[in-house]
Design a protein around this nucleic acid. Structure first.
Ligand SMILES: [Zn+2]
Ligand SMILES: [Zn+2]
Ligand SMILES: [Zn+2]
Ligand SMILES: [Zn+2]
Lengths: 146, 146
DNA sequence: ATCAATTGCGTTATGCTATAACGTGTGTCA
DNA sequence: TGACACACGTTATAGCATAACGCAATTGAT
């Protein structure tokens, strides 16, 4: 009784652990580390980091969660149904950027075609084959900079 | 006898530890983790991670070294005397991007005005005050993709 | 039906990355 | 001389991530 179960949540059916991890992230208004997620889920039977990391790996693969490299933390995807960049279905999306407030922790996820194209062009001229691009702006959000 | 000593290397005089760490990074053709640097410097009296991290902090502050967030590793700056973006003196430079080969480890550092401006513009319209921007492209370099 | 391959799960142990806290020595500038 | 800033060395600890084992359930041939 460990197989994925249909949920109202999204494209690929999530297993119980995957759902739990995603829900915690989705309800959070700031990025969370794997160990913080673990602590939030002790009451649901989570005991070890691997339970979290395995769920996160899948959620990352599904595009439902993003990893913030400069924070070693994770956020739920904030633009699930974007139609842009020719990837219409579900969570599929191209390169995305994050603005991270270092005061309140709030994260804005956005996409910019022009940035994407410039980086792609650079790669083309250099014969570099991009696999994954990370763009993270750390700073202060409007509310905190006031 | 612990104070910075004038060297032929760059703008701010480096201390002995800072020089040792910078030299190791500068000679390397791939990013290095702090602990790898530590191991390279055992013969020079390094015994603890803090010796490396403290030197790295200063080198980062001087702009002589960059941290690759997606790798938890460090590289020597590859465009020390750039005149672009109105920051003419020494190592000062604006936002920079990295293309990281996941096969051979080679890193290309570059700057793109347009990308910089697009991200700045986004920040302005959102009233976000950027402090530091990370752009890292992981993939395969021309040589390795062949 | 049965077997093999795949996937998810739980546990223990381990490794890698980074910082806290303490004390020492040295150069600078009243 | 004394206050201060700063680089340094050491020990201990905190935080992030994975290796390796074995078990259970599902899937999809044969
Ligand atoms: Zn997203
Ligand atoms: Zn804020
Ligand atoms: Zn640089
Ligand atoms: Zn390569």
């Amino acid at each position: 009784m460990n197989a994925p179960v249909s949920t109202p949540i999204s494209a690929p059916a999530l297993t119980k652990n995957q759902s739990l991890v995603f829900d915690v992230l989705d309800r959070s208004d700031a990025p969370m580390s794997a160990y913080t997620i673990l602590d939030r889920l002790r009451d649901h039977g989570f005991r070890a980091p691997l339970q979290v990391y395995r769920a996160l790996d899948k959620l990352l693969e599904f595009g439902m969660v993003h990893r913030l490299e400069s924070l070693n933390a994770f956020v739920a995807c904030a633009h699930p149904e974007s139609e842009c960049c020719g990837k219409g279905h579900g969570h599929g999306h191209g390169t995305v950027a994050f603005a991270i407030c270092e005061s309140c922790g709030h994260v804005s996820e956005f996409h910019d075609h022009e940035v994407d194209h410039r980086l792609s062009d650079w790669a083309k001229t250099k014969n570099f084959k991009p696999a994954k691009t990370t763009i993270e702006i750390r700073g202060l959000c409007g509310a905190c900079a006031a």
